[in-house]
């Protein structure tokens, strides 16, 4: 089972929940950080690194000897990544989405595949758990292709046990990076807080992910702070509340110390153990419902 931990609003506790779930899951997991703009999970799971590779995207490289300046490439490109001004071809690799259209359309075979570095993918292990993350290069604008590369890496059975459950820490927001991070999951866990900002962004996340037709459940973090609006929203939307993590300055302090909250005391361990079982039950229930 692949579980995506997402949120809408940032700072609601996605990484804290992901780290604690990986410490309490019943069997070893693959913990994956898909928040490639600001990956933080490794700061808590402190993995031993065993490998890395650059993540690349294919961008055009033009052989001006072969180019006859017909402009077909520039006319096709939707992202203004290649332009032709009389007898000069200009490539703007940072604008390129890697669709390959220019290479396919060029009648002279003048465009071949160059590369741009999106960032890096690193992996290793943290105790019994495997670990995988992407890290966007600072200055690079496009995180979705890197997020897809990290997910593709997950399929390497020489590195990751295909039978292991996967816990994916998703980026905040509800636009393309967040959608790309949850699109291959089996269950989406939405971490929110009972505040006006938390509920507004939860509503957006629910709206964004609903078309994916996946089981979703909510974790209310910092319960007791703020107001009750989140409960009414979840009831109305049919979203089960999988856990409530109480507002407790001690939890914030444990996180600030770089600790895995579930490891701090038996009571918190039990709370995350219950959440892990609730997520597994949500996944299993949906699988059965689909087979029936």
């Amino acid at each position: 089972m692949k579980v995506a931990i997402a949120s809408g609003k940032g700072g609601t506790g996605k990484t804290m929940v992901t780290a604690s779930l990986s410490a309490t899951w019943e069997s070893p997991v693959v913990a994956v950080d898909l928040d490639v703009e600001e990956p933080n999970l490794h700061l808590f799971l402190k993995p031993e690194w065993t490998g890395r590779q650059d993540a690349l995207i294919e961008v055009p490289r033009v052989d001006e000897e072969k180019c006859d300046y017909c402009r077909k490439c520039a006319d096709l490109c939707q992202f203004k990544a290649i332009s032709v001004l009389s007898t000069v071809v200009m490539v703007f690799p940072e604008m390129c989405h890697g669709c390959g259209g220019c290479m396919a359309v060029c009648p002279k075979g003048a465009i071949t595949a160059g590369t741009r570095t999106l960032g890096e993918i690193t992996w290793g292990h943290s105790g019994d758990n495997a670990f995988l993350m992407g890290r966007l290069r600072v200055g690079e604008a496009m995180s979705p292709p890197l997020i897809r590369e990290v997910q593709a890496q997950l399929a390497r059975s020489d590195l990751f046990n295909p039978a292991a459950d996967v816990l994916m820490d998703a980026p905040p927001g509800v636009s393309c990076p967040a959608v790309n991070a949850v699109i291959d999951s089996d269950v989406i866990v939405l971490v929110t807080e009972p505040t006006p900002f938390g509920v507004f962004d939860l509503r957006l996340a629910h709206q964004a992910f609903l078309p994916l037709n996946k089981p979703m459940g909510v974790v209310v973090n910092r319960a007791g702070l703020g107001n009750d609006e989140v409960y009414g929203f979840c009831r109305g939307a049919g979203l089960p509340i999988l856990a409530e993590i109480p507002y407790d300055r001690a939890i914030a302090e444990a996180y600030a110390d770089g600790d895995i909250v579930a490891r701090r005391n038996p009571q918190w361990r039990e709370m995350f153990g219950q959440l892990a079982r609730a997520i597994q039950a949500l996944g299993a229930m949906t699988r059965e419902a689909r087979h029936a």
Binding site: E37, E38, G139, M142
Partner: peptide
């Protein structure tokens, strides 16, 4: 939040 497209 982040450092990607909208932040740039």
């Amino acid at each position: 939040p982040g450092i990607g497209c909208p932040v740039i």
